[in-house]
Amino acid sequence: MKFASVMQLFPGCEAEYRRRHDELWPELAEHLDQCGISDYYIFLEPDSLQLFAIFEAGDDFDPERVRSHPVMQRWWNHMADIMETLPDSNEPLARPLTEMFYLAGSCT
């Protein structure tokens, strides 16, 4: 299954957001892998500073398992100063997106 969402970056934080992700903690990458997350992409729309995230996960994907792990909580705390978060939480405000179109094929 594919999951997609939109998040909001604060103005002037583009370079810092990239730097932090370039230095992604190995224990966070391991946690996401153990939760079945793969092919995780995040794109920036520079005019609005919206972040578009998409990843794949198996049918047994459990978002609560991702959220509740201490390393995820630490990462969200680490990122909370540069992006919108949920009220009373450091979890990023991630609005889910609905798939509207998919074209399978090759690039040949």
Rank of each mutant, 00 (worst) to 15 (best):
residue 2 K to C: 00
residue 7 M to L: 13
residue 9 L to G: 01
residue 9 L to S: 05
residue 10 F to S: 10
residue 10 F to A: 13
residue 10 F to P: 03
residue 11 P to C: 10
residue 13 C to H: 13
residue 15 A to I: 13
residue 15 A to E: 15
residue 18 R to Q: 15
residue 18 R to G: 00
residue 20 R to N: 10
residue 22 D to T: 04
residue 24 L to A: 14
residue 26 P to Q: 08
residue 26 P to G: 10
residue 27 E to M: 07
residue 28 L to N: 06
residue 28 L to P: 01
residue 29 A to Q: 10
residue 30 E to R: 08
residue 31 H to I: 05
residue 31 H to C: 01
residue 38 S to R: 09
residue 39 D to M: 05
residue 40 Y to G: 05
residue 40 Y to S: 04
residue 40 Y to C: 03
residue 40 Y to D: 07
residue 41 Y to K: 12
residue 41 Y to L: 06
residue 41 Y to A: 07
residue 42 I to R: 07
residue 43 F to D: 06
residue 45 E to V: 13
residue 46 P to Q: 08
residue 46 P to S: 08
residue 47 D to F: 09
residue 49 L to S: 02
residue 50 Q to I: 07
residue 50 Q to W: 00
residue 51 L to S: 02
residue 54 I to W: 01
residue 55 F to Q: 05
residue 55 F to N: 02
residue 57 A to W: 01
residue 57 A to C: 03
residue 59 D to V: 07
residue 63 P to W: 01
residue 63 P to L: 02
residue 66 V to Q: 05
residue 67 R to Y: 14
residue 67 R to Q: 14
residue 73 Q to P: 01
residue 74 R to S: 12
residue 74 R to I: 11
residue 75 W to G: 06
residue 75 W to K: 02
residue 75 W to V: 01
residue 77 N to T: 15
residue 78 H to Q: 14
residue 79 M to C: 07
residue 80 A to G: 09
residue 81 D to A: 15
residue 83 M to V: 05
residue 84 E to G: 00
residue 86 L to D: 05
residue 87 P to V: 13
residue 88 D to Q: 14
residue 88 D to E: 15
residue 89 S to G: 09
residue 90 N to A: 11
residue 92 P to W: 09
residue 93 L to H: 12
residue 94 A to F: 07
residue 101 F to K: 08
residue 102 Y to P: 00
residue 103 L to S: 09
residue 103 L to D: 01
residue 104 A to H: 13
residue 105 G to N: 06
residue 105 G to K: 04
